[in-house]
Nucleic acid binder design. Structure first.
Lengths: 162, 162
DNA sequence: ATAAAAACGATAACCATTCTCAGTTTAAAA
DNA sequence: TTTTAAACTGAGAATGGTTATCGTTTTTAT
């Protein structure tokens, strides 16, 4: 997977964007933190560890550029900040997430769940689908387990007091 | 449908929120502009026509309150503003939208498209689904037609010049 | 009527993001 | 290589949607 960076570099070069240390460090950070849904601020702080002189504006500019190059996806969970995900190589342009309303963690779900739905939309609404986002909000298995545990210990306590 | 307002009023009263003219005017505006995906600013300007003395902060406060009461849904299309949709009565808590990347209009699509997908998610990921959002980004039928028309006239022009 | 609690309008504060600008770096041409 | 123009950068100001503050007004219960 080491040539993933190389491929991104090549892509920049082909479109006559310059290969700066700041951009390289940013890509590096994104690669090292896949699945983490980093905000621009997050990326900024992480890049600063490698390249302390970098400015926040440059991080924003680089993320915007990578988004246009379709290297990262800019996504929004409605919490007031944009998050930037490295796109899986060869992956279609989709976003399927499970957002836990208890602990806030965001998990991914498999692609292709929506192929059928997409067909229906294209046909019934004459809408040419280029991209989609599907986000489920609910309670993840970890929080369900936690809640169950709390319930049980509350029950035990109630037995003692009664 | 006139008692829709009444029901919302009742709901406010039951939860001991006060029934102020500002809140009433805001609900009225939302009812008169369903399907429009109004931003807070939009609502503010429309309410101002009925009640010119209202403040922007009050509109935000009211929309926030209505969102908590599950009367409106606060949604985000990634364009930097939150939009507020009156929830259909009896409708499940879902958001299905078609966002046109050409003209920016947002259309609704029918509910129930995802019942099957939701089941899979609950089973395979042990994730208790409370809500979901599905947004397709693409080109609406209007813009498809417009593009086709432009193409044709360009062709005609090219025939003349050649 | 009166007092406590809620709600209000105006506007300041906040905060994520974008813009500006003067100085620096890059990469292609000389 | 050196040169040069365009691209890129960091710092911080500006922007814009949203939230917080505060003194005043309105509502509801006593």
């Amino acid at each position: 997977m080491e040539n993933r960076v190389e491929r991104i570099k090549k892509q920049l070069h082909e479109q006559s964007y310059k290969l700066t240390p700041q951009r390289e460090a940013t890509v590096q950070v994104l690669l090292e933190n896949e699945e983490d849904h980093l905000s621009a601020e997050d990326v900024y702080l992480l890049v600063k560890e490698k390249a302390p002189e970098i400015g926040l504006a440059t991080v924003y500019r680089t993320l915007e550029l990578l988004n246009e190059l379709e290297v990262v996806d800019k996504i929004n969970f409605g919490d007031g900040v944009s998050r930037y995900d490295l796109r899986k190589e060869g992956a279609s342009h989709s976003h399927h997430h499970l957002v836990c309303i208890e602990c806030g963690t965001v998990d991914e779900i498999q692609e292709d769940l929506l192929a059928e739905v997409e067909k229906i939309v294209e046909k019934d609404y004459q809408f040419k689908v280029k991209d989609h986002r599907l986000t489920f909000h609910g309670v993840c298995h970890r929080c369900q387990a936690k809640a169950k545990k709390n319930e049980e210990s509350a029950e035990a306590a109630s037995l003692h007091t009664n």
